[in-house]
Structure formats: structure tokens, C-alpha cells
């Protein structure tokens, strides 16, 4: 079978490959033309689905609610409509006690409607946590071209499980934002290797910020989603106490590391400088022997 890149796919293409064939029904699809009420003010083009596709379907027979952000429309940025679609879906997940899968591909808040986008992210987080309190799994998939930045990265941080590929980037401030605010000495955004070592999929998997590491392949993302949907997910006092302990330990172990390579060396990776070059099998063998797991403390 020919491998199909998850990174290169559109949001619609990702859902088509993720879900069982023919199982998808879309809610508020492009035919409803629910577009941003704010972009016209800036003479910017709008999109009929406001850059996110939501609906219901199944993954190996497991019914889910699902969402995919379109990184090619305004960098997947979250505006009023985009955000409200996902918030409504998460409210429904809570009511139906149905698991959710989100394919992230976003630079964060859409600045042309910044206040509405910022608040939408806060509403999504609250709705997501309410659903999780009912035992709903919320699985995030990270491997899109826009990465998962800004408020999007905080939503991802609330998911019960995260699947990531090498191309997946997860961070609050993006490389350009850090460079713009703090200077090129702090972060050279053109240094792609530095970007991957700091916020890329391999690093995130090694420190326990993501749970499953996959190839940049639509079939691999589907298999990982199936795996993540089998694991029970709860969110209560003990999980949060576990997460607190896990994050405190991370800061103690790696708090003085200057670079990803130093973190990997402290983890016990024998030749950490070579880690970015490892193929997936070699990487799994190395990483799984020494990585920090989240162990459901998420």
C-alpha cells in the first residue's frame, strides 16, 4: 500500500482516512455557509465551514464525534464560528457520553477576531473538561502543517490522549513569536532542527507530553486512534495529583537543560544527537526504553 502523508492531507482528507468508510455525517457543513462575520471587515476571504469540519462517524465500529481543523485556511486559526462549532460538539459529547477525536492543525487564536477566538478557546476547554468528567475520551491527533500552537496547544493539553508524528509541533508560542519578542539569540525560527528539538513530535513523545508516536501516515494515525480509544480515561483528583507530580518531576529532572539533546541525554538516550535522524522503528526502540510516560496522569 502506498503511504499517504497525514501532513499533506486536507482536513476532509484526514477525516475520510480516519473514519470507517461511509460512516461520516457532517454537522453545519459548507452548504450551511456559516462563515466568519468578522473577516469581511479586513477584506479577507471567508470559508463556508470557517476552517473546521465537525460531525459524527465511527472508527473500527467505535462511534465518535470528530473534528478536523483546516490548516490551509488562515493557518487553522480559531475564530468565533470555528470555536463555537467545536464547543457545541463537546457539549454534545458530554450529553451523549460519546468519545471525541480532534485532528488539530492550528496556529491558535485568529487575530482578526481575537477576543471571540480567545473566549471560544476558554469555552472549549471548559466543555472538554466537563465531558471528560463524565468519562468521555478526547483524543487529539497532532501532525498537521500548521502545527498546534497558541490556545490550540492548551486545548490539546486538556485531551485524555495525544497522538503525534515527527512533523507534529506542539507549543504555546511559535518560533516566530518567540524570535519577534525575544530576539534571534533566544530562538532562531529559521533553524528547523532547533524547532523539531524543542517542540517537535519526537521530543514531545520522549517527555510524556504525547502518548503515541506514529509515522506521518494516515493509516498509522487511524491505528493509533483505535488504540487510544481503547484506554479508559478519567479526570479526577487523583489524575490531577498524578499530573502535578509528573510535571514537578519533569522540572526537577530537566529544568536546567538548555536544549532537547540535553533532555534526551538525561533520560538515558545513549547517542542523543543522533535521535532526530532515527527512523520510526529505531526511534521507538530507543525512546520506549527510557521515555517519561504520562501513565494516564493527563
Amino acid at each position: 500500500m502506498i503511504r499517504q502523508s497525514w501532513y499533506e492531507q486536507s482536513a476532509r482528507g484526514r477525516l475520510a482516512n480516519l473514519l470507517d468508510p461511509g460512516s461520516f455525517s457532517e454537522f453545519l457543513g459548507p452548504e450551511r455557509r456559516e462563515m466568519s462575520p468578522h473577516l469581511a471587515l479586513f477584506d479577507l476571504p471567508r470559508q463556508f465551514d470557517d476552517g473546521i469540519i465537525i460531525g459524527t462517524g465511527s472508527i473500527e465500529g467505535h462511534k465518535v464525534l470528530c473534528a478536523a481543523q483546516e490548516g490551509r485556511f488562515m493557518g487553522g486559526a480559531i475564530g468565533e464560528i470555528h470555536g463555537a462549532k467545536l464547543t457545541g460538539l463537546l457539549h454534545a459529547a458530554c450529553r451523549l457520553q460519546r468519545d471525541v477525536v480532534i485532528a488539530f492543525d492550528t496556529g491558535g487564536v485568529r487575530l482578526q477576531e481575537a477576543n471571540a477566538g480567545e473566549l471560544a478557546i476558554s469555552e472549549m476547554i471548559r466543555a472538554l473538561l466537563e465531558a471528560r468528567a463524565e468519562g468521555v475520551r478526547v483524543v487529539g491527533l497532532l501532525g498537521g502543517r500548521a502545527g498546534c500552537y497558541g490556545g490550540g496547544s492548551l486545548i490539546a493539553g486538556c485531551c485524555s490522549a495525544l497522538v503525534i508524528s515527527e512533523q507534529g509541533r506542539l507549543s504555546v508560542s511559535g518560533p516566530e513569536v518567540i524570535e519577534t519578542n525575544k530576539g534571534v539569540e533566544e530562538f532562531d525560527s529559521r533553524d528547523r532542527a532547533l524547532v523539531w528539538r524543542t517542540m517537535g513530535g519526537k521530543h514531545r513523545y520522549l517527555i510524556g507530553a504525547a502518548d503515541i508516536f506514529v509515522d506521518d501516515d494516515v493509516a498509522a494515525f487511524r491505528l493509533a486512534a483505535i488504540e487510544a480509544l481503547r484506554v479508559p480515561a478519567v479526570l479526577d483528583q487523583s489524575v490531577l495529583a498524578g499530573e502535578q507530580a509528573r510535571l514537578e518531576l519533569r522540572l526537577r529532572r530537566f529544568g536546567d537543560a538548555a536544549d532537547g539533546i540535553d533532555v534526551w541525554a538525561k533520560l538515558g538516550v545513549a547517542r542523543p544527537a543522533e535521535l532526530p535522524e532515527l527512523d520510526i522503528d529505531a526511534f521507538h526502540a530507543t525512546a520506549n526504553a527510557c521515555r517519561e510516560g504520562a501513565d494516564a496522569a493527563r
Partner: peptide, 16 residues
């Protein structure tokens, strides 16, 4: 906004 904070998983800690 810093390299160290993102290296150590700022998104995870703010979500926490």
C-alpha cells in the same frame, strides 16, 4: 515566551 519554557512543555503546564 522562551525556548526553555517551550522545551519543558509550557502548553501542558498551562493546561494543567
Amino acid at each position: 515566551m522562551s525556548r526553555r519554557d517551550e522545551l519543558l512543555g509550557l502548553s501542558e503546564t498551562l493546561a494543567h
